[in-house]
Every structure is written in C-alpha cells, then in structure tokens.
Design a protein around this nucleic acid. Structure first.
Lengths: 341, 341
DNA sequence: CTGTTAGCGCTTTCAC
DNA sequence: GTGAAAGCGCTAACAG
C-alpha cells in the first residue's frame, strides 16, 4: 500500500496538520520539525494523491486563454476547441475563460496581463505577440508564480513555462522540401503568401522555407513575399495579380491564413498551368482544395491538441508536477489527400 | 455548486446508500424508489465525481497489454512506452502488466485471452492477430463486459471497443503518393518490402499503396512483394538481390520492420543510382538513414500515443465514460529530415 | 428493500 | 508551533 499522510505523521511523530503544513510549504513549523517530516517523506517514498487533495480543497483550476480577435478559420477552430474544453470543465476541475485582445497589439495584451495579475487565475495560456514589453510582463508574472504557456505563437527568450505550438522553422523547412521534391527537376519561381512579417510564426516559417530552398533547391527562385494580412480578399488580389503577371511561377507556399482567397485565385488563374501548392492549416476550404488537387499538401497544427495540452500543462505547473514531454509536443501534421482525418 | 449525492438523496427523500445503489446499478432497490432517484439525478443535473468515487473505492485499474514476442525496434519501443506508463501507475491508479505471446500465433493469443477471462482484469489492450478464432473470443470477452482495445494492428469485424493504431490503408496510399510525387515524371519499377502478407496491417498498407499507384502513377510498376519477415538479415538479402538484378528499380517502399537490413542493402547497392525510398517507423536506424538521405520519408505511428491512448480508453470504458475521439485518433506521422522530433 | 455509519487521503478550522 | 476533529464526494459494511 502506498504511504499516506497518516504514515508519515506516525513516522515523524507529529500530527496530520503538521505534515500538511510541510507538504504545502506553509509557515508555522519549527525548522527541526520540518526536517523530521521531510525525512519521513523521503524514507517512505511518499507520493501525494493529487485527486484526494483536490477533493479536500474543493479545488478548481481557474484558467484564462488570451486570444487575438482575428476571425480566420484557424482562430475560429481554436475557439471551438476551447469551448469543448469548457464543456469538460466539471470533470477536469477547470474553470476556463477566454479574453479577446486586438491582434498584433502588444499594448492591449500587456494591459490584459496586468489586469490578470490582480485577478490571480491559476494559469494563463496566451497567443503571444512578440514584443519586448510583452516579454517583460510575462517574465514578471512568471516570477510572481503564475503558470504561463504560450499558444500557437511563442515568446522566445521569455520565462514562459511552455510553448503549445509547432516548431515553425521546421514547418517552413518541411514546406520547402515538399515543394522542392514535388517539383523535381523543374526550374522556376515560387510565390510566397504570408499574413504579416510582423508575426513571429510567419517570420519563422519563411526563414525555414528560404533556408532549405537556398541550400537544396537552387533551381527554384523565391519571389518577394506577398503580405495578405491573413485576409482572404487581399490574399486573392495579391495572388491573382502575381499569377497574371508572372508566367514563371510554378509553385506557391502559403504560410499564413486567408487561404480562401488564395484558393479562389488559383482556380481563376491557374487552370491552364501546373502549379504545386503547399498551404498551412486544415480548414473546410483547404481540405476541399486538397481533395480537388488545387492544393498538394497541407501543413497543420492540431488546435484541439494545443488546447488540451495547454490545460494539462497549466494544471501540472499549478501543482508543481512534471508533464509528459512527448505528450505535449505539438506535431507538425502533414496532410496529403490520402491521410486526411 | 455542483450537486452531490447528498443533494439527490435529499431531493429523492432517500438515504445515501440508496442513491449509491442506483448510481452503480446495484440490485436491491424497489422499482419506484429507483425511479424517484433517477428523476432527482436528472433534475439536478448530477454529474458523478469519478475521482472521489475512486478514492472511496481505493480503486486501481488493472490493465493487461498483450504483445507479440517479436524483437524489432518498433516492438522494443512499444515496450518502453508501456514501461513509462507503468512508472506513472501510482498517479493514474493503474496496475499494468504485459504478456508476451508468440507472434502470428492465433492459438497462443486465444489461450492467453481465455486465461485472462478468469483473472478478470479491468481492461485488455492487445496487438491483434487477425484470425477468426481470435475474433470469436474477443467478442465473447466484450459481451462478458471486458473493455478491450486493439493496439497497432486491428481486429476488424470484432466487437473490440476501440483501435489504438493508424489507418494502414491510408498509410499505404500516402506512401504511394509521396513516392509518386517525389519521382515526378520518371518511369520505372518500385520494389516493395513487407514483413509478411499474413499480417493485416501489412496487407492493408500494400492494398492502399497499390491502389493509388494504379490510379495515379501508371508509369511506375510495382514489382512482386519481397517478404522479409521483419528480419533485418532476410530484408538485406532480398533487397540487395533485387537491386543487383534489376537496374530499372527507381523507388522502394518498405512497409514492415527490419529496416536495418534494407538500409544496409541500399548503402551497398545504390551508391551509384538515385533511389527514392519510403519506410515505416521512426527508429534510430531509420532516423539516421533519413538524415543521410538514404531514406526520403518515414511514415510513423507514435507508440507513446498509442499506449497512453489505450490506457485512457480502457479506463473510460471500465467506468462507462465517453472518450475524446479526436484525442484518441492515432495520426500517421510523416517525417522528412526537417520535422524530426 | 433501505438507512446508518465509518472511512478513502487530504485539507482546514480552531483550540491549545 | 502543534494537534484534534470535521469534512470534501463517494462507497461499503452492517443493521434494521
């Protein structure tokens, strides 16, 4: 039988209350007593039963998700996954709330975080906007003891406990290799459609993409990046225009959102030529385009996994417990038309 | 506050014991009383606190994993993941045991299952051997109330509750498309290395592979399947021999295990020619081969995910709870050298 | 058939 | 500083 608080109380010759105080590092225990209890804990190999503790405490983990107020399919899906997590709240002892902030607006994000530092939730998950002032307040909150995980877009160089998202440099590299291999010996130009070069994940994807292209596919030339602001209309215009003007384009890499517009442009302008296209994020639109051969491969991050992972990690950090690293790694999913879920 | 057993006892005008009997569908409750309690449960929207129940019961979930005694890298990794799960047992209230049975031996599997039906574990996870007698006993056990999930290799047409493994037809199709696209306009022959056509997952991969090849890549001819019995030595011999004899081979699909031998053969015989190679399962050997360009892509199933998923599903089924379907779907991982974990 | 009571492992008053 | 005792939500004897 696993040792319980009773066992260590007996072994240390103290009461349950004292054991509990030591276990939860509460004050009011003499140094020697604390030592005795800690010794007993170690000797008996005590492992705390978190479920029982939570039952006694009536604990619920209050978690906050901070999301940008952008309305592309991916963010919509992310929201849906958070709602699913909220439905599971009773069973998981969570109390999840989302806060929307204007996209790409560090100041707004900072003020929300400032607000939260007063409210003291058990954990914060945030789609990070990569700016020094955000890093600063995140570091301050982490130092103050808040568990924080970044979601989808990371805040490198900060003290955030965990990043629940894909490796975007690897994603860009993978896109380059797929495109290069699919195109084979052909020479030509590659159009790149991004949302904005101000966002870290887009910059990283581009960085990975261009480096593999340069190293391994010298016959392919990358054209200047089209910034579609993750907006279908703008994306449509930019891509349609590029295809009309440049007959040398043989491949497209869409590393941001707004693929609805991209797909429309492809259908209008590329009926008569063979284009190889790689895009990010599996949505109803990209799925249909993959199936009808408008898109050749989709790189995806599983929003459901990201949300579940963020919740698990925040709960674990709140309790000072370890996470299963492999379980929390967000894979880069590669979908061809044959392995769609 | 969530309603508790006390609330429904009060609402129904009965005692805690009676509520508990209804909740756990134990006998000894008059029909009318049961109705009253069930009404109260429904009206108050009662949700049982599984953690508290397990605490009171002192419950541990005894789970058995039945694995084939084959010693390829994949099975070795699967075993390692089960050991990891065993390490987590205290926290997860599980008691996990593995049983090895001779590979591809339906009779042995049946007798182990027969044995288990007496021992009554809370759940069984098994790498299924696809045979009618196995299906029969699995169905019998499921009818008798045992939660059963198949692992890695499914038992279609049986009543097993769940399959924790990849869609192997999709895997074969994906391999075909990758190979076809990577080879581009080239014409030539494709060697296929399998373990054994007696195993369902290998048959399915081949089926998916050949169908996409036939539909979409008519310039590529599939050679008769080489059956390497998942053995590196045999695989080496077969592949080396095929490459020596046939200069028309431009691609290889290895859909089983024993890739160590395949890789050796490729390094010996294919230095002077450009071969495109797709293999299954990420191991130390295939990873190295991917990095040095001997292999072009690896299709993988995440053994860790499979084991964790099997445990979660078995626990849920033992409690009659729902699972999160998306979480339990085992993805087909596609690894290029750029997105290795 | 139904109710009373003790207790799972842990936390939390409130005394001492 | 420390301990005794009650209680979290649920289950399991054991009475009646």
């Amino acid at each position: 039988m696993r040792p319980t608080v009773h066992d260590i109380a007996a072994a240390a010759g103290v009461s349950l209350a004292t054991v509990d105080r030591v276990l939860n590092q509460r004050p009011g225990v003499r140094h020697v007593t604390r030592e005795k209890v800690e010794a007993a804990i170690r000797e008996l190999g005590y492992i705390r039963d978190v479920a029982a503790a939570n039952l006694a405490k009536g604990r619920t983990y209050s978690l906050v998700f901070i999301l940008p107020a952008s309305d592309n399919s991916f963010m919509y899906g992310l929201n849906a996954e958070i709602r699913q997590a909220i439905l599971r709240s009773p069973a998981e002892r969570t109390d999840i709330r989302t806060i929307e902030v204007p996209a790409f607006d560090p100041a707004a994000l900072v003020s929300v975080l400032e607000e939260l530092s007063r409210e003291k939730p058990c954990g914060i998950a945030m789609v990070a906007t990569d700016a020094p002032e955000v890093r600063a307040i995140v570091d301050r909150l982490v130092r103050a003891g808040f568990p924080i995980v970044t979601l989808v877009s990371d805040l490198t160089g900060s003290l955030r406990h965990h990043y629940a998202g894909v490796d975007n440099i690897a994603a860009g590299r993978t896109a380059a290799r797929l495109l290069g291999r699919f195109l084979g010996p052909r020479k030509g130009e590659i159009a790149v459609l991004a949302g904005s070069m101000l966002v870290r994940d887009h910059r990283e994807r581009l960085e990975g993409f261009t480096s593999v292209m340069a190293e391994e596919f010298p016959d392919l030339t990358i054209l200047p990046v089209l910034e579609g602001r993750d907006d279908p209309e703008i994306a449509h215009m930019l891509v349609a225009d590029a295809l009309s003007r440049n007959a040398g384009i043989i491949g497209v890499y869409s590393l941001g959102a707004g693929n609805r517009g991209l797909i429309r442009a492809l259908k209008e302008k590329a009926v008569d030529r063979t284009l190889t296209v790689i895009a990010h994020e599996l949505t109803a639109h990209t799925r249909a385009a993959l199936l009808d051969h408008t898109i050749d491969a989709i790189l995806n991050q599983d929003a459901g996994h990201e949300v579940r992972s963020a919740v698990r990690v925040l709960k674990a950090k709140a309790d000072g417990l370890a996470v299963i690293e492999a379980q929390e790694r967000i894979r880069l999913d590669i979908f061809l038309k044959d392995n769609l879920p």
